[in-house]
Simulated scan of single mutants.
Amino acid sequence: MAIVTAHWGEHIAQALQVYLWNWPLSKAGGLLGLVFPVLVKQEWLHYGYALVMLIGLWLLRDGFVGRSRRWWMIAFAIQVWHHLEHFLLFVQALTGSYFFNAAAPTSLLQAAFPRLELHLFYNAVVFVPMVIAMYYHSRPTTEERSAMTCSCARRPRLATA
Rank of each mutant, 00 (worst) to 15 (best):
G96Q: 02
W44D: 05
N22V: 01
A103H: 06
K41A: 14
Y47L: 15
A28L: 04
A93C: 03
V65F: 00
W44L: 07
G30K: 06
A104V: 09
F100M: 01
L34F: 14
F76V: 09
V65R: 08
L39E: 02
L57S: 06
K27C: 07
V91N: 01
L89G: 05
N22S: 13
S97K: 15
P24G: 08
G48D: 06
Q92W: 08
A104P: 05
H86Y: 07
L34S: 15
R70Y: 10
R70C: 00
A77I: 07
H82Y: 12
W21I: 13
S97D: 11
R69T: 03
M73W: 11
L84C: 02
F64W: 10
W81V: 14
G30P: 01
A50H: 02
L45K: 08
L51C: 09
L57Y: 03
I78L: 11
V52C: 14
F87G: 10
H82W: 11
K27S: 15
L88K: 04
A102R: 11
A93S: 14
Q42F: 12
G63Y: 00
L34V: 12
F99C: 01
T95M: 03
R69P: 00
F90C: 02
W58L: 09
G56C: 10
W21M: 13
H82F: 12
F64Q: 11
S97P: 05
H46M: 10
V38R: 15
R61G: 05
L88Q: 11
V40P: 05
K27A: 14
S68C: 04
T95A: 02
W58T: 10
L54V: 08
Y98N: 01
N101M: 10
A103Y: 02
V40I: 13
R70H: 09
P37E: 07
M53N: 06
R69C: 00
S26L: 08
K41S: 14
L84D: 00
E43G: 02
S68N: 03
A50L: 01
I78T: 07
L54D: 12
M73H: 08
G33R: 02
L54I: 04
E85A: 07
G96L: 03
W44A: 12
I55C: 11
P24R: 11
V91E: 01
W81N: 04
Y49N: 12
L51G: 08
L45M: 13
N22K: 15
A75V: 04
T95F: 02
K27I: 00
W23I: 13
G30I: 03
P24M: 11
L60P: 02
G66R: 09
G29R: 05
I78Q: 00
P37S: 08
L57V: 05
W58F: 15
W23C: 12
G66E: 01
I78S: 03
K27Y: 10
V65H: 02
G33N: 03
V52P: 09
A77F: 03
Q79T: 12
V38P: 06
I78C: 04
H86V: 06
E43D: 07
S97Q: 14
L88S: 07
D62H: 10
Q42P: 05
A77G: 09
F87Q: 12
A28N: 10
V35R: 11
A28R: 10
L59Q: 15
H83V: 04
